[in-house]
Design a protein around this nucleic acid. Structure first.
Length: 874
DNA sequence: CCCTTCACG
DNA sequence: ACGTACGTGAAGGGG
């Protein structure tokens, strides 16, 4: 099917103008719109390969709509100074690019777009409309998709009938009714007073159209609303008319004028140069020179439409029966409501296998078919491929169903292949190999597409040596995480509220004190207002750092502590306010039945660590006593059980020792010494007994810095010492620990050669920063190269340990509650405490033996605050 | 929506 | 001369 891409020139130019900083040529002509528009154009051309394309522009004189309504667009501001000339520049460039343009006296871009869309549809084309204007959603059809700019300009979001329905529960034709009711201030479409988006949607869900709403004005709830609907009925109908895009535009030529022609360098490069468009030129060259075209065409796949088979009830039962024994992998797509534990419930399944696809809908299937289907999901002999299996298994769990037999989780696979990715939804995964795929028309098409890219993912996993990591670590771990999330941790709501009340009282007092000291009230939480008070009103020492104003962070304030009594109050206030808003209120908002269930993200970090959200339970305060007290509210979910924690001691330094094989560092761990004291002794050239607390503190900071990629700046800031001194420490360190030095240098060297680093379990991180044009970025790249193998290996080992622990826990009354990077928190029945602690220590220490010993320390207590060291018997 | 600040490993 | 420690998530302000 030929593909037509239509761009709304005015809307996109406006977007670009406001989204981008005011760039200019050397002689001062504005060019930000050119940058934005052309970047988007090139990207779209590369990803979509249009067969036809056109940019539509307004030709505003005496539009048809002004005849209908004098106020139309009356409110619209004059085209801003910097934007107007850019339309001419843009048209000049588009002409050189051989991109067809369309404008017609008396019509807006909108109407031209509608008209072209209609013609193109009639000729059986697939149409994509790019615009920032939501009005265009009315054009959506099975053949027409709308790409709305999100933030900025080149980031777009594809809307089809399904997406529209999911967002608004509206059909495309209702978009004009929506506008009719709520109006549009930017076009000065009045709508009905008092009706915004929320109300308009509610009315349309009930009565479908403006006419339907007006006819039922008596029935709607709310007196004011009723009278407004009656009073402004005509205005609503007029607004709807104004919002309707005109399709009956006399287009003077055929669509053949819009056939895509490949731009020619001889014409394009001069005009890009004329407007100083360096970045755009670079994009152009990447796209059209050095045979980018051919290699890309070769690697790009197109998803085939698999035949979709409809099954009768009998058909389903026999088919499921066959799948139960065929051993053929089923690729599954699941549509659901809610999110995992939060009210997750499946609605539809897509199944793809052997070139055929199927759709199972909850509403339509008989109970018998559903039962057979769920049995199939629970059969671990039936191999399954799907994306984000953790969420799917959690939502199935809500209704007592298990998901077993997952042999490939595509989201996790994609994360290992490209850990810097941020999107892992099915469509994003498919687009990775089939960039032309913009949308799934059905859940069965989704499954078929996933099945086809699954092959590519498997190839890629093997090429990169990541299959083992996926199958032996990430996939089994996702099952463990699902259990942990469902389990949740116990929390004492009353105690938390009480804690919050205490804080509130102090907070109110501090607030009053601060206002008194400042001489007036202001918003203490606003760095901007606070900066004004401190540095202008009170005239405190000129701010140390600025970026978008005065810096008021704790580090800056700490230096001003003695300068004014208000500083200390503000620091206290900040600390307590953080506790109150993030922790007290944040946790209370998440509590359900005395428990909190976090979500562990397994595809977020670039190093392989987990992250925790909604709420984040990996950053519960511990460093300061005031915050640490909060840990009292976390307790086991079972009465009389206890919390058991186990944390790796110095795991990252041990990994560094293993990698570097530095004799001193290895010896230190082999002998079970305090590694910071030993480091101090080496750096200061004294015996262990002579190391002071101060020296140990310095050495500890050096050790800390090592894993981050040590810098003089960082160390001097951390220890509050001059750069000279930190430089000295680092030199001394590397003199004694020359193996560490050699190792770190070799990691960086290898990373620069390969553009990537790996962890012990082969986890991969690419480091484009190493080749960045900016020196700071390149240095960051070097630190990443030093840090990632260490941090990532620690993550690998912990993940492996979690899998072994979860397995070993089965005979016992115990459960994992949390993972905090180098710590596991469990709850255990007292009678199993000793066995479980022994098991925990054993599994964690031996998860992946290194050339230096691993040490795990256990603690036990009734809550997460009152934890006492616990040594299980051997 | 981006920035600042601050909580953790 | 510049600007930096590595990896995260949440809340609040303000454009």
């Amino acid at each position: 099917m030929p593909r037509m891409v239509i761009l709304d020139g005015n809307s996109l130019a406006n977007r670009a103008f406001y989204a981008l900083p005011p760039l200019t040529t050397a002689d001062g002509r504005p060019t930000n719109v050119l940058h934005g528009f052309l970047t988007m154009l090139f990207r779209l051309e590369q990803e979509q390969h249009p067969d036809y394309w056109v940019v539509a522009f307004d030709k505003t004189k005496a539009t048809v709509r002004i005849e209908q309504y004098a106020g139309y667009k009356a409110q619209r501001k004059e085209t801003p100074e910097g934007l107007r000339p850019q339309f001419d520049y843009l048209k000049e460039i588009l002409a050189e690019l051989d991109v067809p343009m369309l404008e017609l006296a008396g019509y807006e871009a909108d109407d031209l777009i509608a008209a072209v869309t209609k013609q193109a549809e009639a000729q059986g084309m697939e149409i994509q409309v790019y615009t920032g204007d939501r009005d265009a959603l009315q054009l959506i059809s099975p053949k027409t998709h709308i790409f709305l700019t999100k933030k900025g300009i080149s980031d777009v979001e594809c809307y089809d009938e399904h997406v529209l329905w999911e967002r608004y529960q509206l059909r495309p034709y209702q978009i004009i009714d929506l506008k009719g009711l709520m109006g549009d201030t930017s076009d000065n479409i009045p709508g009905v007073p008092g009706i915004g988006e929320k109300t308009a949607l509610k009315l349309l869900w009930e009565y479908e159209t403006v006419e339907g709403v007006l006819a039922n004005a008596d029935k709607v709830s709310g007196k004011k609303l009723q009278s407004n609907l009656k009073e402004y009925a005509d205005q609503a109908r007029l607004s709807k008319t104004l919002a309707t895009m005109l399709t009956e535009v006399p287009l003077p030529f055929s669509l053949d004028n819009f056939i895509y022609r490949r731009p020619q360098a001889s014409k394009v490069l001069p005009v890009l140069k004329k407007y100083d468009l360096k970045n755009v030129t670079r994009l152009w060259q990447e796209r059209y020179t050095n045979d980018g075209e051919t290699t890309e065409e070769n690697s790009e796949m197109v998803v085939q439409a698999w035949s979709e088979r409809e099954l009768s009830e009998e058909g389903w039962l026999t088919q499921i029966e066959q799948w139960q024994t065929s051993r053929e992998p089923l690729t599954l797509a699941c549509r659901y409501e809610g999110t995992g534990l939060q009210g997750g419930r499946w609605l539809e399944w897509g199944v793809a296998v052997l070139g055929e696809s199927f759709k199972l809908t909850r509403e339509e299937a008989s109970t018998q078919v559903i039962k057979a289907w769920l049995d199939l999901l629970e059969n671990d002999k039936v191999p399954k491929i799907l994306a984000d299996s953790k969420t799917v298994s959690l939502l199935l769990g809500n209704e007592g169903t298990m998901l077993k037999g997952v042999v490939l989780d595509l989201s996790l696979a994609s994360y290992l292949i490209q850990s810097s990715r941020t999107k892992f939804a099915p469509l994003d995964l498919v687009k990775e190999y089939a960039p032309k795929q913009d949308v799934f028309k059905s859940v069965s098409e989704e499954a078929a597409a996933l099945a086809q890219v699954a092959t590519k993912f498997k190839e890629e996993l093997h090429t990169l040596g990541l299959a083992d990591l996926l199958h032996t670590v990430e996939e089994p771990l996702s099952l463990v995480l699902a259990q942990v999330e469902r389990q949740g941790i116990g929390i004492d709501v009353d105690q938390l509220k009480h804690f919050g009340e205490g804080i509130s009282i102090t907070l109110r007092q501090l607030e009053q004190d601060i206002y008194a000291l400042a001489g007036n009230t202001f918003n203490i939480n606003s760095p901007k207002q606070l900066g004004t008070i401190l540095f202008e009103k009170l005239g405190l020492a000129t701010a140390k750092k600025t970026k978008t104003g005065y810096s008021t962070d704790a580090e800056t304030l700490e230096e001003l502590r003695l300068a004014h009594p208000i500083i200390e109050k503000i620091l206290d206030y900040r600390q307590l306010n953080k506790l109150m808003s993030t922790y007290v209120n944040g946790l209370l908002a998440q509590e359900k039945n005395g428990r909190i269930h976090t979500t562990f993200q397994q595809t977020v970090t670039t190093t392989g660590r987990l992250s925790s959200t909604e709420p984040n339970l990996q950053n519960i305060p511990i460093r300061l006593e005031q915050g640490r007290l909060l840990r009292k509210i976390f307790h086991p979910t079972e009465p009389d059980w206890v919390l058991l924690s186990a944390d790796y001691s110095q795991i990252e330094l041990r990994i560094l020792a293993h990698y570097s094989q530095d004799p001193l560092l290895c010896e230190s761990f082999a002998l079970g010494q305090d590694v910071h004291t030993r480091t101090a002794a080496e750096v200061f050239g004294i015996s262990l007994e002579d190391v002071t607390q101060e020296m140990r503190r310095s050495a500890k900071a050096v050790n800390f810095g090592l894993v981050y990629g040590l810098t003089e700046f960082g160390l001097s800031r951390d220890l509050g010492i001059p750069r000279k001194e930190s430089k000295f420490y680092i030199e001394q360190y590397f003199k004694r620990y020359s193996g560490v030095k050699r190792y770190l240098e070799s990691v960086v060297a290898q990373a620069k050669q390969e553009g990537q680093v790996r962890t012990l379990l082969n986890r991969l991180r690419r480091i484009p920063e190493l080749f960045h044009s900016n020196r700071t970025q390149r240095q960051l790249g070097e630190r990443i190269a030093m840090n990632t193998p260490v941090q990532g290996t620690a993550a690998d080992i912990m993940k492996l340990a979690m899998i072994h622990v979860a397995e070993g826990l089965k005979p016992f009354r115990a459960a994992i509650l949390l993972q905090v990077h180098d710590e596991l928190l469990l709850q255990v029945a007292p009678e199993d405490l000793e066995s479980v602690a022994g098991l925990l220590k054993e599994k964690m220490e031996n998860a992946f033996p290194l050339s230096v010993p691993m040490t795990v320390d256990c603690k036990v207590g009734p809550n997460w605050y009152d934890m006492k060291a616990y040594k299980p018997e051997e």
